[in-house]
Design a protein around this nucleic acid. Structure first.
Lengths: 217, 217
DNA sequence: GTCTATAAGAGGATAGAC
DNA sequence: GTCTATCCTCTTATAGAC
């Protein structure tokens, strides 16, 4: 089941255009359903219906339910880490963090299903992406934590533990999509009004950036 | 399934000591299993085994799987909101927030299963606590948001939207239990070392409190 | 590639003896 | 109150016709 145990499709694995299109439809449907109900809570029937396809037909493209799940996760993970990749050691610290946070918020708002799929996987012990977290993710975070640490020791950021800063950025930027129903229960329909996302950005950015700005004494 | 649709046990519902003890064992086991695997991912057999009880015997105490789930949630919710209840309008704003955040962090660290059970329920649309969120939770948050807003307009806190402040406190304080495996993948076994929880407290408190402290100009 | 039919098994829930 | 045995539904996955 673990993601890293699967090989990536080779260029030699020729797929026709109709195959690609059908896989695309299935994966899109699967993201919706898996993120809403979790792995066990999702039935192949649900995915098939959403993909307007019969169950056996769907299983022609993905032999097992797990294969669909892992494929959806794989697709999501790459994109999910891109913003952190882009954190530039040569840039202005505050501006780099602002860009990172904004990008994360934007992605969560645009694809809340992806955020929830990921949250659910981790919440339940990350059975499918355990190795990925310990290798790819850890390596990237270590690398970017070093960048932030350097900024701090150069006096360009207030003293803060870089790992905890990264965790808190993750927590706050994904909270609005992962806990959407709770936010809605409290705030009502104002979350669907035009300015809401900007309001969230403003709140999250000001809180975190205020916390890391160097104070003039 | 919704929590508020169920009546609370009356004093007239006499239960023997052994009944109470067995229900206690079941609910403790159920919290562990439900929080680890979710509602659908959990089997009655798993709970029964953890409670050292046969499945039919367990079903003698709770007729249906849903009943166990709802009971566990009920127990958890009350305790979960207590710290917010305790936010005192008459207290010192920074100290009140510090106490609130510390208490939330402490509870998450002490009962990560409860945090994850709650997170999972909300992540999947809160089918069992929808009404609770829209009534009890909303009322409490509205009330405490008004308190924080007053502190701000009295100039005792930096200008910040009280709702978003509360959401960010929730996000950051529960992140370390909900996303535990991700934290572990990145930080390794240092999360089990003695000082780790203090380190987390320090990071979370300094970031958030710095963001709300009034700056002297 | 897509369908109908169905095998195979897991898991929730109950019957009824003790 | 607790157990063994069992029913029955739901769901994954496959067989085989078209």
């Amino acid at each position: 089941m673990d993601i890293t145990a699967r090989k990536k499709p080779e260029p030699s694995d020729k797929t026709t255009r109709i195959q690609e299109a059908n896989r695309r439809v299935i994966l899109d449907a699967a993201l919706d359903v898996f993120s809403a109900y979790g792995f066990r809570g999702t039935t192949i029937d649900q995915i098939a219906e959403k993909a307007s396809m019969s169950k056996p037909n769907l299983l022609y493209y993905f032999k097992r339910k797990q294969d669909i799940y892992v494929s959806v996760l794989e697709e999501t993970l790459e994109a999910w880490l891109q913003p952190l990749h882009d954190l530039d050691p040569a840039g202005n610290p505050i501006e780099e963090l602002r860009r990172y946070i904004s990008k994360k918020l934007q992605m969560s708002a645009l694809k809340p299903e992806a955020s929830r799929l990921f949250a659910n996987e981790i919440l339940h012990g990350a059975p499918a992406i355990q190795t990925f977290l310990k290798t790819v993710l850890k390596k990237l975070v270590d690398e970017k934590a070093a960048v932030i640490r350097q900024w701090v020791s150069d006096g360009r950021l207030a003293p803060i533990d870089p790992y905890h800063l990264i965790f808190m950025i993750w927590a706050t930027t994904q909270h609005y999509s992962d806990f959407d129903v709770q936010i809605r229960a409290v705030l009502g329909n104002q979350v669907d009004k035009p300015g809401f996302n900007d309001q969230v950005s403003q709140a999250v950015l000001s809180l975190i950036l205020n916390g890391v700005k160097v104070r003039q004494v």
